[in-house]
Design a protein around this nucleic acid. Sequence first.
DNA 1: TATAATTTTTAGACAAGTCTAAAAATTATA
DNA 2: TATAATTTTTAGACTTGTCTAAAAATTATA
Lengths: 218, 218
Amino acid sequence: MNSFTIENYLKAIYKLGLTTNEGISTNAIAHSLNTKASSVTDMLKKLVTKKLVNYKKYYGVSLTDEGEKNALSIIRNHRLWEVFLVEKLHFKWNEVHEIAEQLEHVKSSKLIDYLDAYLDYPTVDPHGDPIPTKEGVINTIKKINLSKLSINDVSELVYVANDSDKFLKYLSKNKIEIGTNITITDVEPFDNSMTISYKNQQLVISQEVANNLYLKSE
Amino acid sequence: MNSFTIENYLKAIYKLGLTTNEGISTNAIAHSLNTKASSVTDMLKKLVTKKLVNYKKYYGVSLTDEGEKNALSIIRNHRLWEVFLVEKLHFKWNEVHEIAEQLEHVKSSKLIDYLDAYLDYPTVDPHGDPIPTKEGVINTIKKINLSKLSINDVSELVYVANDSDKFLKYLSKNKIEIGTNITITDVEPFDNSMTISYKNQQLVISQEVANNLYLKSE
DNA sequence: TATAATTTTTAGACAAGTCTAAAAATTATA
DNA sequence: TATAATTTTTAGACTTGTCTAAAAATTATA
């Protein structure tokens, strides 16, 4: 049975792996877990002995099949709990992350099975992230960044890349949510800010905001 | 913020304190937490520095007000989660203890408030144990052991003292549950086994079974 | 390609919690 | 009330995960 710490390392490595094909760097892991590179090196050695990662000194790390299975299981737990917190306990979606970070480590596969059934087998969490199946299959939705959308195309918001309190509050204040249909009506070349139209309203958003919004592609 | 380990010590000391007025012994704690007396002594020193217990070497330990407040908060969490697991996720009541042991340590008072509301403010858990309030008030129900009941008196089962898998399965098999009205119809003096009547059926139970069943008193 | 800058690893230390073995204190017994 | 038995504490060690500081390796730059 893996410790909470090990589970968090696996999750961090999995997530970093989504944005690169090379070995994940020690520093990247340290940064994402708010720890020091030397601690990461220590842990990587332990993960190697547990056959959870492939690791070559100085050349980064990747998950083994077993490591990935473990990471996906934690991510499944996390996302199911987020759905529960939002749909059943009526948390706002910018409040659930820290709590789900704790709940995700509760060990009981029966608990997760029952929770999944209770929530009626959701496929995405409140942020739009897909929920891996029990078998470790994750359905990656095809999505493109808002800033890549052509002017006057309409598409549905399926994913929000930033789940900081501030950003989620910004979205909530402006009534932007997963499922909202969005059109770009204008782009300002000076700073790449853009005017978007949705729910019969218009809003000017910065490039930074746009970078965090993803729409259904194809 | 207390560690899981500290929370478990406080809970154990609280529970042991219910059945004695003297200082709780090191050995009793060690036994209840499945650890060694020396580990308990070490931990008691730490709890003293945190002002969570009163401790006099060789003469046992008791909780401070702060320690008791902490213990009751964990017990509240535990029992609310048990209600959730049984009522919402449809676990059997002999399956929930280990899972609630993990869930009780999740840190978020808002989570517990919302859960409490979601469960419609229950006052007892599935075993009949009272749920402490947010303020740390616990309503101890007046109850007497089944073996103390007079023949032909009828009273309601309010508490089950043993939550081992085996015992809970025994109860479930025989359709005995919290709220069941029970009458003793006969006692066998040889071994103190007794015949009880409930739900239009009769059952012969051993003294050991009777010792674990408590009925509403007064 | 030599040197500088950066990243990563190693070495050694620390905190939390646990353990074994032995010593000290308390309690039971003769 | 001595002595034996039991309980509790202490001393020292171990594990997990972390850290700082320094060394080693890699990558960037002149």
